[in-house]
Structures are given as C-alpha cells and as structure tokens.
Design a protein around this nucleic acid. Structure first.
Lengths: 234, 234
DNA sequence: CGTCCATTTGATCAGGGTCAAGACGAGTGG
DNA sequence: CCACTCGTCTTGACCCTGATCAAATGGACG
C-alpha cells in the first residue's frame, strides 16, 4: 500500500482550491484499483459504502427496470466522481456503474464523505455544482425524449459523445471508447435495429463512419442540423 | 410593508432547525406576493434575480423547446423553494414557473442566497437534498420515458399527482388543482388526444372519474397495475 | 345567450418496434 | 494456422401504437 502521488489528482477542478497537504491526506486514505472492461464498479440498490474518483477510463451509469430493460443514464469520464449518492442523502446507489474500458479508480469509504466536505476547500461547492449540472442535463434529455423523433435523439447523443469524449482522427472525431448500437439505443430509448439503420443511412450520406463498437462523426454540422430537426440537405 | 408572521414558515422542513431569530431575519427581508392563476412567476432563461418560497398553491415548472413544444418538468407544492438555480451555480432560470392556481409566494433577491446558506442551520443541507431528490426523480422519469408505453406513463403520472397532491373525496382521491388533458400530455410526452382516450377508457372501467380540468383516482390499485405494465383485469 | 376552451371521438397513417435471417469479424482453442 | 463460435451488426417484412387531421359536443363564464 504505497502512497499515491499527488500529481494524480492535483490538476482536477475538484481539488483546484485544495492545499497540498489536503491532497496528501485525501490520497493516504484512498484505495486505488484497476477495473477491467465490462466489470461492475457498484450495483444499483446496493449499500453505498464507498465513493469513487475515476482516474482513467470511461464508465457508464446504467439503470435497469423491473422488466429487465436497461437505460444508460450517462457516461462518466476521467476526473469525475462516481457513487456520490451520499451527497444527496441516499444510502444506496441509484444506478450501477460499469467500466466501458479498463479503468483506474480511487475509492474511499462513504464514511469519509463528511470529512471531505468539511475539510477540503471547494470540494462541497464543486460537487454540488456537479449534481446541479447533472440535473440540468437530465432535464434537458427528458425534454428531448418527450418532444423529438428518434433520429434527432440519436443524432444528439452521437454528437454529444463525440464532443465530450472525442478523439480527432483523419476522418473526423471518433468516440474514444467502444460503443455498440445497443448502447446508443439504451441512451436514446430506441432499439439497436433502428440505430443500425440510422447509422447506415448517415454513413451513406457521408455524415459519419462507423464499425463494430466504433463511431466517427465526419460532418458535425450536418449532423447538428438533423439533431435540431431540420432535415439535412442531400 | 408589515412584518410577516413567523408562523408562516415555522413548520417547514426547510427551517426545521432554524432559530426563531433566524426566521424573523428571513421574513424581514422577504417580499410576499400574491400570484394569480396562470401567471408566470419567472421565465426560462431570464436573469435569476430572485428565489421564491411557495407558501400556498401549486406551481408548474415548464420548459419550452425551440419548436414551441412545452414539457412540464414538475409540479411544486406549498412549502417548497422555487427558482434555486443559484444553488447550482446558474445565473438564469432553467425553466419557467407558472401558477397552477392562485398562489402566495415569498421572494428574496438571489444576492441573499449565500447569506441564507451560511447563517441558517440546516438550510444548505435541506436544499441540497432537495436538488438530489429532484435528480433522482427526473432520472426515474427518463427511464420511464425510455422504456414504457404511453398508457403506463400516463397512469404513473396520474397516480403520482394524486398521491402528492391528492384530496380525499367521496369517490376517491382527487388531484387538488385544475389539470387539463393537455397538461397531462405535457408531462408524459404524448398528446391531449391520447390522454383523453385513456381517461375515457379508464373511466369506463371505473378506475378514475374525470371532468374538465379535474381527475379523481377511484381504484388506485388497479391503476397501479397498469402503471407497472400488467394489464388491469376486467 | 354567445363565445371560448376543454374535451371527445372518428378516421387515417406512418414512425419505428418486432420478428426473422443472415453476414461479418474478432477472439479462441485445437 | 485454421476452424469454430459467439457477439455485433445488417437488412427485409410486417404490423401496432399512438400521432395527426378533422369535427363536433359541452361546460363555464362574461
């Protein structure tokens, strides 16, 4: 159990205003763990004994219905906290977290949450803003689900993922973790069949390139037009 | 501008742990206003100069899309705060608030928010829990929108409204503010036509009673079955 | 009594879900 | 190195839920 290096977390917005000795204290109580692709970090409804900081990788947050349907609530990328149910006065996790790729996370017992809140300058403020912006985000998606056609929703999701987790390649911006048609369907409330058809149609028009668990946005502008409901010309 | 009475807010969870002198301070800086039915309290996107406490009545929180569609994000009932964008680091309101009935609200300038947070014991904690539970709620609705049929969603909304804002009558539990088919449609992502047909069908089966801007749940149990996707027998 | 909404209800139709097969590709074990 | 297998993706056919279009009815309120 060697001491983790301060530089791991020093650059994060979350610890922007923390003092160096705070960082050391935070790290000394952290367990760091490696999480293999497709492994569950924590399960919906389970006792929320820990909270986590994603150091590297991508995690999807998933809710499962009694009927067995899954919905991907959001993707988390490196630098963000996961499992902060505690911050909202919950004792169980409201959703499951699954590694979309091999990940590295830091974990702390939830019992330490109050200590972090009280002792690390800016920590509380930042996390509450995070919760607030997640609320904004989910509300916006609720509106989209209520008012938009499937094609618009899928276009939006693909654009957002490319924006937030994109890697520039020769052909455009590629979503930099493996994402299946099924995953996109679970983010947009449709089926993998419909997603497949849409991506095929877009590819034919040159808007995207895609393959097995891989999507690249080629013409963001025209995809944006689709997302906004104006039919893309040509 | 007479001093407001302490008893107006003394019973609220929000001020549960506040001291009497805090209550007086809070009230002395409050404007109280009467808001007529269908009047807008604040407008989406507008500068968030005030936050509000709903003392009496019901308020609906509405988002409007560029295309002009409206979505009712939630209903607020007496005792809750509205317009707390500030708590989440926003400067503009993320949605509009409209009085569903004649209302009474207290208003404070947003500039006082930090003061409330710092000086009133329990205030910060309670509001953050509120934000947290709204996030939970919206996420749950996102899952429903993604996975359930229209009939289930409408059944759920009617049940929830009756539960949270119900008044017991001779026939069952009546939602105690005027609510149109259009309103229900805007909460469930469907059309007033479909809502009308569903309510008519349910009424024929004795599950509900309804009329102009009025809905009464008669057989909550069987409606619950519908909400959960099991077809209601008979 | 007239006007304005909310509501109802019928007819039509299309977006997209469901069902069914197959093709493709990546990893595995022999 | 190759055959096999399993999971992802594609694509066609069909059909159902619920949106859209259109009109009429009925209360509530001035």
């Amino acid at each position: 159990m060697s001491q983790l290096d301060r530089s791991l977390i020093a650059g994060l917005p979350l610890f922007r205003t923390a003092k160096p000795e705070d960082l050391d204290r935070v790290l000394s109580s952290a367990r760091s763990l490696r999480v293999a692709k497709d492994t569950t970090i924590f399960e919906e409804e389970a006792e929320g004994h820990s909270f986590f900081l994603l150091l590297d990788g991508h995690v999807r947050v998933v809710k499962t219905t009694p009927g067995g349907d899954q919905v991907i609530v959001r993707y988390i990328s490196a630098g963000e906290l996961i499992g902060i149910a505690h911050a909202m006065g919950r004792t169980t996790y409201p959703a499951s977290a699954v590694a979309a790729v091999d990940c590295v996370v830091l974990a702390w017992p939830s019992a330490m949450w109050p200590e972090f809140m009280a002792q690390i300058p800016g920590f509380g403020e930042t996390t509450y803003q995070t919760v607030g912006s997640r609320l904004q985000d989910v509300q916006a998606r609720l509106v989209e689900m209520s008012t938009e056609q499937v094609e618009q929703r899928v276009a939006r999701v693909v654009l957002r993922l490319a924006e937030q987790n994109g890697r520039k390649t020769g052909e455009g911006v590629e979503i930099d973790f493996p994402i299946s048609r099924q995953d996109i369907a679970e983010m947009t409330g449709t089926t993998l069949h419909t997603v497949s058809r849409l991506l095929a149609a877009w590819e034919a028009k040159g808007l995207v390139k895609s393959g097995r668990q891989r999507v690249t946005v080629v013409e963001a502008g025209r995809l944006q037009s689709l997302a906004e409901g104006r039919a893309a010309s040509t």
